[in-house]
Each structure stands twice: as C-alpha cells, then as structure tokens.
Design a protein around this nucleic acid. Structure first.
Length: 349
DNA sequence: CTTACCAGGCTAATGTCCCC
DNA sequence: GGGGACATTAGCCTGGTAAG
C-alpha cells in the first residue's frame, strides 16, 4: 500500500485518478471482442473491488493519521533520533494484544529500512501515546466550531463541562426526554432529516449537511465552514496530509458519533462515555455497518455525493452558479434542504 | 505516583494579498 | 514578478484534573 504514501508527496489528485481509471492495460484484459455480459460482469466485479479499496483506504488513513502525528516535524524532536540507533532492539510487537496487532500492521506498510527503528520500544511507545493526543487535538478543534455546526450557541460546546444534558435542544437531538432520563439510542433523532426518527432506518443519515459540516471542519479546517473569500493559507490541512479526496463509510460513521452533543467531557480510548455510558465504539461500528451494506443504494449514493461536494468542492472565486450543479443529486439536495429547515432549527445564535 | 485526557498558549509551516 | 505582511492551520508543550 505504498501507493497511498506516495500520493502524499504530490497533490495532483487528478493524475492519480487517471492512473487508476484510465489505465489501458486493465481494460485490455477483456479484449476488444468482450460481450456485453462480460462487460457487465467485470463492471460489477470492479465495483465490489472499489468498495473494498475504499474500506481499506479508510484504515490506512487512520494509520497515516497516527504516523503523521508522530513524525518528527518540528526541529525540537530531531535530537531524539540519535537515541534510537543506540537503543537496543526491544521487540514488543509479538505480544498478542490489540495494540501490538496494530503496530504489526503498520510495520508492513513501511519500507524495510525503517523496520529496525520501528522495533524499538521508543517507536511503539511514541505511536501508542500519540493516538489519544492526536484525537484530543481533533476534538479540541471541533469543539470550537460545534456551535456553528449544530446551529446552537457555541458556549454549549466550548466548555467541556457545560451541562449539555440540561439543554432542551440537545435533548431533542439526542432523543432523551429529560436530564434525568438519559437513555441514549443507537440511532438518535439527530441522524435523521428533520429529527424524525425512523425505526426502519430508511432515512438514516439523511441529515447529510450536518455530517458534511463536521467532516469539512475536520478535514479542511474550521474556517472552511464559513466560506469566506479566503483570508490566508495555513499549514496543510488534514485532507491534504491524508490524501483524502472523498469520504468513506468510516468517515461518515465517525462524524455521526454524537460525542460532541453528549455530556461526556472526554473521549476515552475505550470508546465508552464516562458520564453518558454511551458506547461510542459500538455506535461507530453500527453506523459503519449500515453504511457499508447500503453503500451502493441510490439513497446513500446521493448522500455521499452531497457530502463529497460540500466537503471537497473548492468554492473558488464568485459563488458557484447553482444552475451549474444540475445533476441527478440535485433533486435530493433540495428535498433534503426543505426537510432540514424545520422550525426547530430556527434557534437564535 | 502514574496514566489519560484536555484546555490554552505558543510554534512552525504555508497559502493569499498587496504594494513596489 | 518579487517579497514581505498577514491569516490560518496542525502540532507541541505545559499544566490542571480525575481516576486507578
């Protein structure tokens, strides 16, 4: 999977795309005389393959995130490199723990020249330690803009200890009836358009705008939300560093985790909320399962297209002519919009 | 005491604007 | 076009807090 790493080095995403999709050698597998049935068969196989690749891509991104968080970017860290070579090759990779499995997987994604370094306990300590750290930074960033994302006063979120459980609007989003009745659902109203729950999950994740805002803030930086006529640059955003050009089921599932709304003040690595006792980990897997299994359905496809457009389309120059966005997802966009604008969302800021 | 997490302040990187 | 001023970003550090 070194390809994913290479693509970090250059930002020309289009050429990547061409490499994979327009590669003549792949097409020639079929030969010029392929029948319609063969073509369809191949197309089907390719679609399945792509789906699998997207999933794989997601986990690689997760790994990348960790690694990049670790990479000695700042000068300060440079001197620690010397200690490494002197370090005895303590091998902690073989213990059958989850952490070790993770490291083992990382191991295979790296060039051989780095393997020695990776076997040092210094490396594993650093990697495992930086995971909560990177996550904390991400949460910190999102808390700062959570008010914008949810259309609620930002003071609800900037202070982690704010009594979010007592706020009626948040109770509605989470589907709890009162501050004392804190039983959380796997699919709370906030995941549905217009906060209308649907047990059959026919409309779940229909509130793509909310998910898209979370993902955009996370991937493109907080100011990308306000869509101002671009003030300045800034260090590379997460989407550049991770070479993310489209969202994945895991990304949506992550954005859907309702941690920001919950009364929890910290995101424990166990995936369990301390105050709320929400099992975020199982929520994540539930959401991901639904998304992956329905990834090719018309409804999810249009949601994904909407999110992708919102997050990744660069709104350069004057406002994009809405007529130009005419395509098959347009109808869905509009219908969703009208549903989203329910009276409940008219909260003053 | 150690570990895990987070907030706030700061640092280095980097894109855009604007004036020459 | 060249080169700062400026804005903005993620990452780092420190210190506080809570739990084991």
């Amino acid at each position: 999977m070194s390809h994913a790493m290479q693509s970090q080095l250059h930002l020309d995403t289009d050429s990547d795309f061409d490499d994979q999709c327009g590669n003549p050698s792949r097409i020639s597998i079929l030969g010029p005389s392929a029948s319609k049935g063969e073509l369809l068969e191949t197309l089907k196989a390719l679609q399945i393959h792509i789906q699998r690749l997207q999933d794989e891509n997601k986990s690689i991104k997760e790994e990348n995130k960790t690694l990049l968080a670790d990479k000695p970017k700042r000068k300060r860290r440079a001197d620690t490199q010397h200690e490494l070579s002197a370090h005895e090759d303590t091998i902690t990779i073989y213990a059958p723990t989850q952490d070790s499995a993770f490291l083992d997987e990382l191991y295979h994604h790296f060039p051989e020249s780095l393997h020695k370094v990776m076997e040092s306990s210094y490396f594993s300590d650093l990697v495992l330690k930086s995971i909560p750290d990177a996550r904390a930074n991400e949460i910190k960033k999102l808390r700062g803009v959570a008010g914008d994302i949810f259309d609620l006063p930002s003071k609800y979120f900037t202070n982690t200890n704010f009594e979010r459980a007592t706020i009626p609007e948040i109770q509605q989003l989470l589907g709890v009836s009162s501050a004392t009745n804190q039983i959380y659902k796997t699919f709370p109203p906030v995941l549905f358009p217009g906060l209308k729950e649907d047990g059959s999950l026919k409309t779940v994740f229909g509130n793509w705008e909310l998910l898209a805002r979370i993902l955009k803030a996370s991937l493109r930086g907080v100011t990308s939300l306000h869509d101002r006529s671009s003030g300045g640059g800034g260090a590379h955003t997460n989407s550049l560093k991770w070479s993310v050009h489209q969202i994945t089921p895991g990304a949506i599932a992550w954005a859907a985790a309702i941690f920001l709304l919950s009364p929890d003040t910290e995101f424990s690595s166990s995936g369990l909320g301390k105050k709320s006792s929400i099992n975020y980990k199982s929520l994540f897997y539930n959401y991901k399962k639904v998304l992956v299994s329905k990834w090719t359905t018309k409804r999810i496809v249009s949601i994904v297209a909407n999110i992708n457009r919102y997050v990744f389309k660069v709104a350069k120059g004057p406002a994009i002519d809405s007529a130009k966005q005419e395509d098959h997802t347009n109808a869905i966009t509009h219908s969703n919009r009208s549903v989203m604008r329910s009276p409940k969302r008219g909260v003053v800021r």
